[in-house]
Structure formats: structure tokens, C-alpha cells
């Protein structure tokens, strides 16, 4: 506060000592005039608040939106999800655009061994095993490695493949989205370009099995498939799938 202001305040204070009652009545601002005097500020206040929140919103993107499965892609009337995503690390980028559909979800108690014969599975207490069969159609040059599949219930509880939650004398399929022996092109940071071995070329359309452990009382309603969060394909399980 400047000395001038301080002086004038004290001056008015001492000068109006006797007539303070009437003085206050005439000077006291009414509610209406306060609103009028501050109308520009009042209009700008919500805008400033919104701008301040928006200025901090990049945290939502990096700490919340991209950190979990938030953007489901649902099937068309034929039951096919035309999945749209892309890998992009700033140096390499490629599309991930397979057509995904659900063939079946069924409870099983064995996995095929290396000779194709069924091998019995030992499960944790109170758990059951589901075999999920996915149908995939995609350009054989498209990189489809590195996906995850899960059964999900209405609350969003999810049970993933690769849980290692059972014992069996057989090997679990390597990926829920590509055939084990024909995974198609892959990429590692040392490579300039995606590479595909001649005998690993992926067909344009194929079925692929994967295995998921859930508690016996689990009620999964959808199969979720994703490469990078937050996007995922959500394929509804029709009631006839689970026997």
C-alpha cells in the first residue's frame, strides 16, 4: 500500500467520525452494483477455471487414459471387430488393423500335447480352464505379435492368457493372436525393417486358440484383445459359447 492511499484512508476515517452512520449508508455498495462492477470478472472466472484445469490435463492423458484399457472397439452386425490401432515409438511405426471375431469360448480340462493328443491339466483349487478360439483376418505383412487376450466380466474384472496358473505336460500357445508356427513378420529394436522367416509366413485368415484360468464362479461376458493400452477389441460372449 502506498503512503498516499494510507493517508487518504486515515483522512476519510477521521473526517467522517461524526457522520459515519449516514456516510456508510450512502457508500455501502448494494448487491446489484457489486455484481455490475464485477461482471467482467465473473464472466471470466469460469473460463479461467476451465483453462487452469485444461492446463493440467496432460496428466490425465499420460497417467490415466494411456495407462489402462479405456477405449473399447465393438463388433459390427456380423460380429467382427475391425480393430484400428498403431505401433509408434517415434522411430518406427506400423498399423495394427486386423479383423477379429470370436469363434468359441469353451470350458476344457486338457491342452493338446506336441503329438496333438490331449494332456490333462491340473488347476488351482476352485479354478476352471477356458479355451478361447479367435478368428483373425489380416494382411500377412502386418506385424501382429505382442497381443494380449483376456476374459472380462461385467465389472471389468479380467483374466488374462499366459497366467501360468496351471500345470500340464504341454506348452501353452505362444500368442493368442498369431499361429505358433506361422507368426508372420516380427520386429526387434536391432532390425531396420520387420523380418519374416520364409517358413513363418502367416496366412491371410486363421483360427487361433488360447487358454484362460478363472475361478469356477466367474461369469465372463466379453473377450478382450489388445496390443497397446488404451485401445482394445471387446467381443461379446454369446450365452451358447459356455457349455
Amino acid at each position: 500500500m502506498s503512503s498516499d492511499e494510507a493517508g487518504s484512508e486515515t483522512g476519510s476515517e477521521t473526517g467522517s467520525e461524526t457522520g459515519s452512520e449516514t456516510g456508510r449508508e450512502t457508500v455501502a455498495p448494494s448487491r446489484r452494483s457489486w455484481l455490475r462492477r464485477n461482471r467482467v470478472g465473473l464472466v471470466l472466472l469460469p473460463i479461467a477455471l476451465a483453462a487452469a484445469l485444461a492446463g493440467n490435463a496432460e496428466r490425465l492423458q499420460t497417467l490415466w487414459w494411456e495407462d489402462a484399457l479405456h477405449a473399447p472397439q465393438r463388433p459390427d452386425s456380423a460380429g467382427v471387430v475391425h480393430f484400428v490401432d498403431a505401433y509408434d515409438d517415434g522411430h518406427h511405426a506400423w498399423p495394427i488393423r486386423p479383423a477379429l471375431s470370436l469363434v468359441s469360448v469353451a470350458r476344457v480340462d486338457s491342452l493338446p500335447g506336441s503329438d496333438g493328443e490331449p494332456r490333462p491339466v491340473t488347476l488351482p483349487t476352485g479354478a476352471v480352464l477356458h479355451k478361447v478360439t479367435l478368428h483373425v483376418e489380416a494382411d500377412p505383412n502386418m506385424i501382429l505379435t505382442g497381443c494380449t487376450l483376456a476374459l472380462a466380466d461385467e465389472d471389468g474384472t479380467r483374466w488374462e492368457t499366459g497366467s501360468r496358473a496351471f500345470e500340464v505336460d504341454a506348452s501353452e500357445p505362444f500368442s493368442p493372436c498369431t499361429p505358433d508356427d506361422h507368426p508372420g513378420p516380427g520386429w526387434l529394436p536391432k532390425d531396420e525393417q520387420p523380418v519374416v522367416e520364409a517358413d513363418e509366413v502367416r496366412p491371410a485368415g486363421y483360427d487361433v486358440d488360447s487358454y484362460v484360468v478363472t475361478p469356477a464362479d466367474a461369469r465372463p461376458t466379453e473377450v478382450w484383445v489388445w496390443w497397446d493400452e488404451p485401445r482394445f477389441a471387446a467381443l461379446p460372449i454369446t450365452s451358447t459359447d459356455e457349455g
Partner: peptide, 8 residues
């Protein structure tokens, strides 16, 4: 270990 949901 890393059990699935609902498995102890």
C-alpha cells in the same frame, strides 16, 4: 506368484 483374479 501372480495369480489371476479370484485365485489364491
Amino acid at each position: 506368484p501372480f495369480p489371476p483374479p479370484g485365485v489364491t
